[in-house]
């Protein structure tokens, strides 16, 4: 039995090694839901979210069909390698560890951070001048902490909190002039649950890479280089023709 297994594994490995990259007319995506607003289900059960819509738009651009397969996060890379689907588009952060197993497309998204301040705040654009002498709230040890410390640590006071709850409490109390948060966290804790008390200040920030990382990429099997290149080209087109911006606005901009 063991021998048989070894032989079949060996032959599988040989087959996989020699198999030629094939042309796809349907690409099956693996996705782990829910992770709002990147991927989640509507009340009627349909999948939607930034990843899903962008994935479908990319397929349209290439001229192929896409289907979506739901797969739990811990088995999502093994599922790709076992050919249950052909690509993963599920808010996967590009890193070297994963690069050993899969081939990533160009990053298509970096989760943004944003500045939040009380609605009556005078600060319009966060900069060294406008934040001088102000108190900035961040969560200790987050990338937002690193960014704010390096950029404004010399002109502003930085209060570091263990939890986002403590920070929101101090913001409510009026002890903080402005906070720098992961955008989805800030949106749910400050914008959605307090109607009109807080606002976003300035643009969303996801640069430079040194602080905010490589962002999310689509993962392919290593031998599907051609397919990855097609997606990269399609992504460039969508970014140029405005489709990407439209989707970005739909999911990451709040009505003000």
């Amino acid at each position: 039995m063991k021998k048989l297994l070894t032989i079949s594994l060996l032959s599988a490995a040989v087959l996989a090694g020699t198999a030629q990259a094939r042309d796809y007319d349907t690409v099956r995506f693996g996705v782990d839901v829910p992770y709002e607003p990147m991927e989640y289900r509507l009340p009627n059960g349909d999948l939607t979210g930034f990843d899903i819509e962008l994935g479908n738009a990319l397929c349209d651009e290439i001229g192929i069909d896409c289907t979506w397969t739901v797969q739990g996060w811990d088995g999502i890379i093994p599922g790709l390698l076992a050919r249950k689907y052909d690509a993963i588009m599920s808010s996967m952060t590009i890193n070297d560890q994963r690069r050993k197993q899969v081939l990533f497309s160009d990053p298509y998204f970096t989760p943004p951070s944003a500045w939040f301040a009380p609605a009556d705040s005078q600060i319009t654009v966060p900069s060294k001048q406008t934040l001088e002498g102000k108190t900035i709230g961040v969560q200790r040890g987050t990338l937002q902490d690193n960014y704010a410390t390096d950029m404004f640590g010399d002109v502003a006071d930085i209060n570091r909190y263990s939890t986002a709850d403590d920070m929101v409490l101090d913001m409510d109390a009026g002890r903080l002039d402005i906070v720098f948060l992961d955008f989805p966290v800030g949106k749910s804790t400050l914008l959605d649950s307090n109607d009109g008390d807080y606002k976003i200040v300035g643009k969303m920030i996801s640069e430079p890479k040194k602080y905010f990382g490589d962002g999310f990429g689509i993962a392919f099997r290593k031998r599907d280089k051609e397919l990855a290149e097609k997606f990269d080209a399609a992504l460039d087109t969508l970014k140029e023709n405005g489709t990407y911006d439209k989707l970005y606005k739909k999911y990451f901009e709040t009505k003000q």
Binding site: R140, G141, D145, N146, N159, R160, Y161, D170
Partner: peptide
């Protein structure tokens, strides 16, 4: 350090997290 004062332990926690 739990109330955001950068005391000795607060500094250590900062360096640890960074």
């Amino acid at each position: 350090s739990v109330v955001t004062i950068m005391d000795l332990t607060g500094a250590a926690r900062f360096v640890y997290a960074r």
